[in-house]
């Protein structure tokens, strides 16, 4: 207990009496954390982008004008039985007509010719979304059977097939790229932390040998450094977090224009605060402690 108290006291003395070095260490840790977090944000944006493109893709199933309600209900329950299907929206003949009129409200010819018919010429429509763009093929195939030939007149899927394939390609490329980038950043982060700590320890090498000569145990010498690692990590993670929040506040208005969602980044950061702050704190802390052990080992001998 007494030695813990002393270790804390020594840690704070060390930080303040080597103030410029402490400042430098925190600065480097913050820069390192900021670059890692930039990567996190980029990953978040790409996943948002692909998600919003995926969301825009759907399959429209056009029913024949003559299809009965029972037949439509059967197809609908058949579609819903697929686990891949995430959403089914049904538009009745009347709703389709309404939409159609709305869409062509400034084209008098079309409206006039529609009025002339006493019966609604349009069939009902079903808009189906699946969880993954790749699932659309399966759905289309399942519907292309003789029993449904007379009920389903068209499926718009064919037009978007290429786009879906391209998105799938891009998504896997981005994922592969970000795995490589994450690995690379991890290595860089480790080297930066290790080197920063090594420099800090190296400036203290004379102190360490003197402490040994007057009878300090290795733990007595190490414990203030462990506490310093803790303090430096806490400060850098906190600074990084507030900088991220601040930057998110600045960027979000522009993000809102692209994704049509307000405070997207700010919300992402605050709803993932435990993951972001917690994991980075633990990783950086372990890295700094590990580095200081490694850097000190040589000076602690004899």
């Amino acid at each position: 207990m007494r030695s813990l108290f002393r270790a804390i006291k020594f840690a704070f003395q060390d930080i303040f009496r080597n103030f410029s070095l402490s400042l430098m260490t925190v600065l480097i840790l913050v820069l390192m954390l900021l670059s890692v977090n930039t990567l996190v944000v980029i990953k978040f944006f790409t996943s948002q982008a692909t998600q919003s493109i995926k969301d825009q893709i759907d399959v429209s199933i056009f029913f024949a004008h003559t299809a009965t309600d029972e037949e439509i209900a059967e197809v609908q329950s058949f579609i819903k039985s697929f686990p891949e299907v995430s959403n089914v929206q049904y538009l009745s003949k009347e709703q389709v007509l309404e939409k159609f009129k709305e869409q062509y409200s400034d084209n008098e010819n079309i409206i006039a010719s529609l009025e002339e018919l006493d019966e609604n010429p349009l069939g009902s429509t079903m808009i189906v979304k699946t969880r993954n763009p790749g699932d659309y093929n399966k759905l289309i195939e399942a519907l292309s059977v003789p029993e449904y030939e007379d009920i389903v007149v068209a499926k718009t899927f064919v037009d978007t097939e290429l786009a879906i394939e391209r998105i799938n390609n891009i998504t896997t490329q981005v994922e592969r790229f970000s795995v490589i980038l994450t690995g690379l950043f991890g290595v860089i982060a480790f080297l930066i932390i290790f080197n920063t700590i090594r420099v800090a320890i190296f400036t203290q090498r004379v102190e360490i040998t003197i402490k040994k000569l007057v009878g300090a145990t290795n733990w007595f010498i190490r414990s203030p450094y462990i506490i310093e690692s803790f303090i430096f990590t806490a400060i850098s993670v906190a600074i990084t977090y507030f900088l991220m929040r601040f930057a998110a506040g600045l960027i979000d208005p522009y993000v809102a224009v692209v994704f049509k969602k307000d405070w997207l980044l700010t919300n992402y950061i605050s709803s993932n605060i435990m993951m972001l702050v917690g994991s980075q704190f633990v990783v950086v802390l372990l890295l700094t402690i590990f580095s200081s052990f490694l850097a000190m080992r040589r000076h602690l001998k004899a």
Partner: peptide, 8 residues
């Protein structure tokens, strides 16, 4: 003092 602190 340090030389005494090392021995608790």
């Amino acid at each position: 003092a340090f030389a005494l602190q090392v021995s608790g």
